[in-house]
Design a protein around this nucleic acid. Structure first.
Length: 276
DNA sequence: AATGTCATCAACCGCCAGATG
DNA sequence: CCATCTGGCGGTTGATGACAT
């Protein structure tokens, strides 16, 4: 009864990924594509849990990941989106191409949350607190059973091999330019083993997919203001309108006034669901 | 130089929702 | 309709590096 474990836990590698494992995973996905994570480790010859492979790929190895510091524009966008969406990191990350939910979540927890806690912070949001967590938050809070098949922290983690993380200079930490999405950020020479593992992505990755051109009206950001955020598919005004709707306006009415040009379907459906 | 503390972030976990048989 | 599988999400942990003492 109950769920079967996502994979056999015995005999699997844990902790930090090695360069060889990364290479194997990249090669396999390059040849066979993503998906089928459960069987992927076996087929690829990796002693890893499928979930671990998926996480490694999505958060670290994907060629379209944008590395480097969060720009001020991105930061402000994260703050705004968090005010609107709460801790829905995947949704927030979905509006920041190249950024992962894990990265944004980490950035929020380590940097923004602390900064925003200070009342005099320039980034202090002017909006009310984020909405309560959506239905997903109804998870149980009981501690896991002691005989759980997957202990909270496996013993091996305590003896995780000392793997050099090769953390580059934080002020310049970014990914090789061929992986950027039009970013104008400085790029450091490849000192990261990740870069050596990755081949240049296919050209289509460098294109902004599904993006709606920014409005050309005066209320949108100028080209200079856009900076690194030129790939974003909505403008400041769109966010403002979106936020206004979230602040208690008649959403149903608002969405019928031609707002389909302002909101994508996902956002709109979310609003309609979460703010009835 | 040695030690302690803090900040960062990759990786893990349990849980959930949708898909599938 | 039900049980199971699969992919995905958000919360949390702990290794590591940076900085302070």
């Amino acid at each position: 009864m109950g769920r079967s474990p996502c994979c056999a836990k015995v005999g699997l590698n844990r902790g930090a990924w090695t360069a060889i494992e990364d290479k194997i995973l990249i090669s396999y996905i390059s040849a066979h594509g993503e998906g089928k994570w459960r069987n992927l480790p076996k087929r690829a010859g990796l002693k890893r849990c499928g979930k671990s492979c998926r996480l490694r790929w999505l958060n670290y190895l994907r060629p379209d990941i944008k590395r480097g510091n969060i720009s001020p524009d991105e930061e402000e966008l994260i703050v705004r989106l968090h005010n609107l969406l709460g801790n829905r990191w995947s949704l927030i990350a979905g509006r920041l191409p190249g950024r992962t939910d894990n990265e944004i979540k980490n950035y929020w927890n380590t940097t923004l949350a602390k900064r925003l806690a200070k009342p005099t912070s320039p980034a202090q949001p002017s909006r009310p607190p984020p909405p309560p967590p959506p239905s997903r938050a109804k998870r149980k809070t009981v501690p896991p059973p002691s005989n759980s098949c997957s202990p909270r922290r496996p013993p091996s983690m305590a003896t995780r091999p000392k793997v050099s993380r090769a953390k580059p200079n934080k002020s310049l930490r970014t990914f090789p330019s061929q992986f950027s999405l039009g970013s104008s950020k400085p790029v450091i020479p490849i000192g990261d083993d990740r870069a050596q593992l990755l081949a240049p992505p296919p050209p289509e990755i460098l294109q902004t997919e599904g993006a709606v051109p920014l409005p050309t009206g005066g209320d949108s950001l100028s080209e200079g203001q856009l900076g690194d955020l030129g790939f974003l598919d909505f403008s400041e005004k769109m966010l403002e309108d979106w936020a206004t709707m979230c602040d208690g306006a008649d959403i149903a009415a608002s969405t019928e006034e031609g707002k389909d040009s302002m909101l994508d379907l996902e956002s709109l459906s979310y609003l309609l669901e979460e703010w009835p």
